[in-house]
Design a protein around this nucleic acid. Structure first.
Lengths: 326, 326
DNA sequence: TTGAAAGCGCTAACAC
DNA sequence: GTGTTAGCGCTTTCAA
């Protein structure tokens, strides 16, 4: 019984008698033997490691992202390495070096890293395959999984307008996330469709966090005339807007309607429950992992499109109503 | 210039002239050369991979855990592999096999995996080092980072009792998490210290999730006499209790005080903000990673205790008040 | 169906 | 300070 025979038996390779295979497997089990992955990787020229890069957004987003990817990886052949990285926009090469040094077979890029051309250039130069989750620029580059943010933004803005709101405060997210601009563009379309002018002074900038969201929402609510609705670019800021309203003695949705974005956990546990947009993060992450792995395994049939769009879903809940509604 | 010289230069090993070292590094930079980690691992007999295992609890807990560990790993030498696993209690050997096959150097175990003796046995048999985060049994086994759940439970229960509550509903978490029992024990101590009897019929069992929390909290609130306060074993269930109260027309904290556990994001964004207990998850995860790595690098000085306790912190916020307070 | 030899990319140990 | 040799644990030839 030579090493090679054992190798064949354990890997279910052909040219081994069934009897030998059984005996080898039994012995391996008995001895708690596990092949050395480093040695296998050295030969295969693969690490069986997939990276996931994102930038400190809300916990629920991160977990959805991870669970989506892990769902696809669950046969255990590939392992998921998490590589969060802050301030990508100001130092894309640094992230690139980190990723290239991590010995990955492929990488899943969430916003805003997926929108850094300098980073994509580095990865391509080193032939490190990547899949981009909801990028907003260069949509033809690499494997892309998207949701039409503009259409989603338009849907939620149209919802508020259709209920009669005209003075609508807008709380933008971090401007370095392209999602922010895409959603804003959707708002503009909804307004222009109804020929309602946008009051630019009612647009304020947050950074997707609760604390900053609270502050900027408050500035909107102490204005006169006061907006009757607030469009927040994510749920955390929308919840913050509700808190700011409450602290000013305003009732939601009677005095103020609030809509969020993301359908995060907090949008359901908030009170009133948030009207928001569901971004199928989990499915998109699964899809991205699926196609990245297909590419790594050489199984992409070449005919599959590189880009795939997932649908958004407007979830109308209790935080929005007609102005002054009971 | 032989391979070995290059190796020495790149690894900042001694016995290389500074001139050569510079030249080698410049060339490596120029060629985007990165050493093959698999080959290095094969020699070093280390993968430089740390695993993190947990069971689908709240997103904020998971992210705190990861960020704590990643904070310690940030020099990039070690990488973090996430390995969530459901229903550990019913199949610990399956998780053990997964971990042993993942080629890890060490593993961070969060609840409830950290409390599975069968799992610990497997890891020890294979000499896979581990660190346990807030275990509740066999506290002398391996590297342990804990918080005294009983003391924390006692603190929060004492808080409610001291405000005059006597009819207190208790919403337990998943009984397979030992934390649940530890916290309950703390509640009992607080009651017995004041010689207040516990009404066992006011104890209900949830599973740490919002949805089940809502259901069981509701059963408490439609009882007569109705409890004046609810002790929930985590924040998600506490928020659910608030929602159930609201849906029954009860005001918090006027008609019902609610206290949670965990100081999760939702405890701050809820309304009213939750009285809760801060578990320093992030610091504990950092500490666990720190000591695991010290052990892997052979740098544990042998004098450091294997177990380290972190302090809890009772956060009194707006969801608790004296019974009937305005 | 099985085995022997060679080598994946790197570095420890030992010359020089 | 630098080079040579050997080998980490596994699998791919190719031969038996």
């Amino acid at each position: 019984m030579t090493p090679k025979t054992v190798s064949r038996a354990l890997n279910d390779a052909p040219h081994v008698s069934e009897a030998v295979r059984q005996k080898v497997k039994a012995a391996a089990e008995e001895l708690d033997y596990h092949p050395n992955i480093a040695a296998q990787s050295l030969i295969a020229r693969r690490s069986f490691l997939i990276g996931l890069t994102y930038e400190r957004p809300s916990p629920s987003y991160v977990v959805e992202l991870q669970n989506g990817a892990l769902g696809r990886l669950e046969d255990g052949r590939y392992r998921l390495v998490v590589l969060p990285f802050s301030h990508v926009a100001s130092r894309p090469e640094e992230l690139g070096r980190l990723l290239l040094r991590a010995g990955l077979d492929g990488i899943l890029l969430a916003p805003p890293a997926c929108d850094q051309p300098a980073l994509l250039n580095m990865l391509e130069r080193q032939k490190l395959p990547y899949a981009r989750i909801t990028p907003h620029s260069e949509l033809d580059r690499g494997i892309v999984v998207t949701m039409d943010e503009t259409a989603a933004g338009q849907a939620v803005a149209a919802h508020l307008l259709s209920m009669g709101h005209r003075l609508i405060g807008i709380v933008l997210g971090d401007p370095s996330h392209a999602a922010s601009m895409g959603r804003m563009e959707g708002y503009r379309r909804a307004f222009s469709e109804l020929q309602v002018p946008i009051d630019e002074s009612l647009i304020v900038t947050g950074d997707f966090t609760y604390d900053v969201g609270y502050r900027v929402a408050r500035t909107l609510l102490i204005r006169s005339p006061r907006p009757t609705a607030i469009l927040a670019q994510n749920d955390d800021m929308a919840v913050a807007a509700i808190a700011a309203a409450r602290d000013l003695g305003l009732a939601v949705p009677h005095d103020l309607s609030v809509a969020g974005f993301d359908n995060s956990e907090v949008s359901r546990t908030a009170w009133p429950q948030l009207t928001t947009v569901n971004q199928p993060v989990r499915q998109m992450a699964w899809d991205a992992a699926d196609r990245l792995i297909a590419a790594l395994d050489g199984k992409s049939d070449g005919t599959a499109p590189l880009r795939r769009d997932h649908a958004h879903e407007l979830l109308i809940r209790a935080s929005t109503a007609a102005p002054g509604a009971p």
